[in-house]
Nucleic acid binder design. Sequence first.
DNA 1: AAATCGGGGAA
DNA 2: TTCCCAGATTT
Length: 354
Amino acid sequence: MCLGFNKKMNVQKTLIDWYLGNKRDLPWRNTTNPYYIWLSEIILQQTQVAQGLPYYTSFVTNYPSVFDLASANESEVLKLWQGLGYYSRARNLHASAQYIANDLNGEFPKSFSEIIKLKGVGDYTASAIASICFKEKTAVVDGNVYRFLSRYYGITTPINTGKGFKEFKAMAQDLIKTVDPATFNQAIMEFGARQCKPKSPECTVCPFNADCAAFINNEIDNLPVKLKTLKVKKKFFNYIVILSQDNKTMLEQRTGKGIWQNLYQFPLIESNKPADYETILQEVEMLDYVKSETLELSLYNTTDIIHKLSHQHLYTKFWIATVNTDLPEGIPFKKADTFPVPILIGNFIESFNF
DNA sequence: AAATCGGGGAA
DNA sequence: TTCCCAGATTT
């Protein structure tokens, strides 16, 4: 798409003027240190500012430099990340920190094409870092950018397709050509987040309402267009919380490919339908560290806890298995909350209060 | 291209 | 409920 020169200038200026008058004071806006910008951008992937903010503060405090992050162990990083979700971000962040510290002598890569090679860094994040830290004219395309551009120009191409990405990237790239890229990128995102919101955008006081295609044509609620593919699977999780005579329980690390990789959990019995007491009892008796003749099993939560993820609903029961024996391989109850665990487990540990 | 990966906020 | 969030990676 080729935009008229004057109209384009006006869009750039309006966005930047709005930003300078309305931007939030956020900690990562007071630095251009690529380590901190990188940290903030990874944390903010698919995450609202309000949710990510305390994690950013925590990571900056615990790991003031890339060397501090690199020398931490992965479980410690995952523990700090606990509750934020998408844990591959934490694993990739840690791995990339080690790469930067050890292979690049702590020197952060300085161009889009080098930055995007880092694990966990895609087009959006590389554009953000390159523009904010190194003034490179690479336009960001995130959810906010899709929304503003699709509405203002009335673009109906689905945003979650390869064609959509290329079209919106080209449009944003065209807009960023002649302006300060760091300010422009943050302006268009902030505008999408606070003014051109997904629901109930502030159109009556919007500086673009005179020539916004979606507003003029009453299409605000229909843009951007997104193809929906979601099909949610149901799973049934049974967590076995062992209480031993020597005040220990069992935690295992998830090593498989799926969700919560490398996080910890109680021994899990998964089934494709709701499990009954007898079935669980038999399964628990077969666990090699449980002595069957001393086992007492009871259901902790009478109604399933339904933990909702994007692609699956986990119907969860916590079973308390009390044994009259010691648990040499176990961990003390009191230390359960020092392990990185999914929030589903974390909530249980907190409520159970060992 | 489609599926997968979390958890919380907003309406 | 439903949709979305300063997306990236794997299949």
